[in-house]
Amino acid sequence: MSTLFEQIGGEAAVDAAVNKFYRRVLADDRVNEFFEGVDMERQAAKQKAFLTMVFGGPHNYTGKDMREGHRHLVQRGLNDSHFDAIVENLGATLKDLGVADDLIAQVAAIAETTRDDVLDR
């Protein structure tokens, strides 16, 4: 049985999704303020790291990394509604790319496991 990451399409799927996903996020007034002033060149790699992680691909981020990496955003008001918006944009991106609903649900489930860490609770 292949892994979720392989079923979605691996690194190629990350490459295909990264610009579509980040374009959606930047166009989304619910969350784009958190990405204000973030350098575009460095973003590509960071967004790929995010997608690889939620696609179930290889990474070594810990819950502590997620907590520390988003704490400055929590201090700026990051909450459940923003988290939901990111997951929604993620789902819409994957749907656009023709990924099957059950795989999208598995991606959303992985994202869900990080909620308390990302929101620092």
Binding site: A45, A49, T52, M53, P58, H59, Y61
Partner: peptide, 10 residues
């Protein structure tokens, strides 16, 4: 360091 998997470039 970040992802330790060749993606994040940290």
């Amino acid at each position: 360091h970040g992802c330790k998997a060749g993606v994040c470039q940290a």
